[in-house]
Design a protein around this nucleic acid. Structure first.
Length: 473
RNA sequence: GGCGGCGUAGCCAAGUGGCCCAAGGCGACGGUUUGCAAAACCGUUAUCCGUGGGUUCGAAUCCCACCGCCGCCUCCA
């Protein structure tokens, strides 16, 4: 498998530290507002990667943090904490705010069929680990104390800038942040801050205060994955300063290489524009569902293009995604039908080749830096062949199994367990009877009646029929 | 100013030196099937890949220039 590594800016062959096992850390949400589709693109890329690694038989330990403190509004390490701002505005305790938006995030994650990570560690529950790491950084000379604040000394870390390609000189030249007199170097960043106005305060060796933003990921990733691990994911905006600072902290503290592969998801555009609150195009998953879009279509849409490419999210695209999923679902229904009704038999060489080729090509496509477009093309080529084939029950079952393997990665199919109401069933039977009498007029009238109640009836080969909710597969 | 990405059909999007007169999805149109539908299948929908040069036997793919779009460097996935 090959992955593009932001650190080296190259596509590299992926080799886990331990064969068959992968440790993966994903930067999760800062829970000060409802996460939107852009946030979820990044989380879905992590989910896709994890599912694919699992598809390949690799055991993945996945950690996703929830940031519920310390995310300052500006990186001059001044100003308000975003959670605190929300708390003050809504006149609520920061933890209450965090809970509301954490719940919203978890709910949307579930709607999008994101496999829960092994752990969602919260920053506020790891203050001790952060303090311990800060102490080490001070002891090793990478951090210094000024009054009740602790700063990381970027000049002590030779590789600062390796991830983002920034150099300290360039950063200074382009700096738009105000100079903080306490810092030795303008790019030094806070590890621990003192601010009497801050609502969330903890005791520390440097007095009451709260942790800087970057330290949480360093502390929590090493706690759950060790000081050195395989993959770290996040949005492209995390590259600098967040991930750059994480590397500086973690590698300085442990003396080991921190992360082997850095994956960054590019931003989502909405109708060709950057999403922002002022443009009013920051949709949440829940809002899209209220608008009538299907949750699996949202998932499909968000994963259907390459993660290192800006993806232009549109409502038309969502509709196209619904159609595409329907196509797969329709094939599943057909195969289920064959599996149940066709005669038993052996799996022919032809069918054997069809599904083994499909799985191999699907694997190859995603192994190429998660080439999802190619993988989907493989999937649809397979669907077309499956729809054409005349087959026995065992073959249908094998093809269903193939689709289910593919969907263990895509995660877009839904169990078709719609309960059909009794009266609709009766109407469908009535129509069947009319059809047998070739009373087309009556049959069509019943069909119209069924449709008026929000259901559709479709004939299947052999005189049967299927009832489904109107607009569904 | 520094760092980086992109421009392929009506839309989304793969392909990064010969298999490309360019995959796949959506849409559209025609056909097969159907009592009629739906679904499915078949066919058509880019002789050409932002523009102009160059390298090469050969380029969407490499080089140069230009135009356009976008991201990071400041909170953001």
């Amino acid at each position: 498998m090959k992955l593009y590594n932001t650190l080296t800016r190259k596509i590299e062959k992926f080799k886990p530290l331990q064969q068959g096992k992968v440790g993966m850390y994903s930067c999760g949400p800062t829970v000060y507002s409802h996460p939107h589709i852009g946030n979820f693109r990044s989380f879905l890329v992590a989910d896709l990667l994890k599912r694919f690694l699992e598809f390949k038989g690799i055991k993945v330990t996945h950690i996703m943090n929830i940031t519920d403190v310390g995310h300052l509004v500006d990186d001059a390490d001044e100003g308000a904490d975003k959670l605190e701002e929300a708390a003050k505005k809504q006149k609520k305790d920061p933890l209450e705010i965090a809970k509301v938006y954490t719940d919203s995030f978890l709910q949307a994650s579930k709607l999008l069929n994101i496999k829960p990570p092994d752990k969602y560690p919260k920053a506020t529950e790891h203050i001790k680990e952060m303090i311990d790491m800060i102490k080490i950084l001070i002891d090793k000379g990478y951090a210094y104390v000024v009054g009740n604040n602790v700063y990381y000394d970027v000049t002590k870390f030779a590789n600062y800038g390796q991830l983002s390609g920034n150099t300290l000189d360039d950063l200074n030249a382009g700096a738009r942040i105000e100079i903080n007199e306490e810092k030795k170097h303008p790019q030094d960043f806070a590890l621990w801050k003192h601010d009497p106005k801050h609502l969330q305060q903890w005791d520390s060796p440097w007095g009451k205060g709260f942790p800087g933003w970057h330290i949480e990921c360093s502390a929590m990733s090493s706690k759950y994955l060790g000081a050195e691990f395989d993959i770290h994911t996040g949005g492209e905006d995390n590259i600098f300063p967040h991930h750059e600072c994480e590397i500086a902290q973690s590698e300085a503290a442990s003396g080991k290489k921190f992360v082997h592969y850095w994956l960054h998801t590019r931003f989502l555009l909405f109708d060709g524009e950057k999403m922002s609150k002022s443009k009013g195009n920051l949709y949440t998953i829940q809002e899209l569902i209220e608008k009538g879009f299907k949750k699996n279509a949202i998932r499909y849409s968000l994963i259907s293009s390459h993660y290192r490419q800006n993806y232009n999210f549109t409502f038309d695209g969502l509709k196209a995604a619904e159609q595409a999923i329907d196509k797969i679902q329709q094939c599943v229904i057909r195969l289920e039908d064959i599996r149940k009704t066709a005669k038993q038999g052996k799996i022919s060489e032809q069918v054997q080749k069809l599904f083994s080729d499909c799985l191999a090509e699907f694997d190859n496509a995603l192994s190429d830096d998660l080439n999802i477009s190619k993988a989907l093309a493989v999937c649809f080529d397979f669907i077309r062949e499956a729809n054409k084939s005349d087959m026995n029950s065992a073959e249908a079952s094998a093809l269903l199994d193939t689709i289910s393997k593919i969907d263990s990665v895509l995660g877009v199919l839904e169990a078709a367990d719609t309960e059909v109401p009794e009266n609709i069933k009766e109407l469908a039977e009535k129509r069947k009877a009319a059809k047998l009498n070739k009373d087309w007029k009556a049959a069509d009238a019943v069909r119209a009646e069924i449709l008026a109640q929000g259901w559709t009836v479709e004939d299947t080969p052999g005189g049967g029929y299927r009832v489904k909710r109107a607009g569904e597969v």
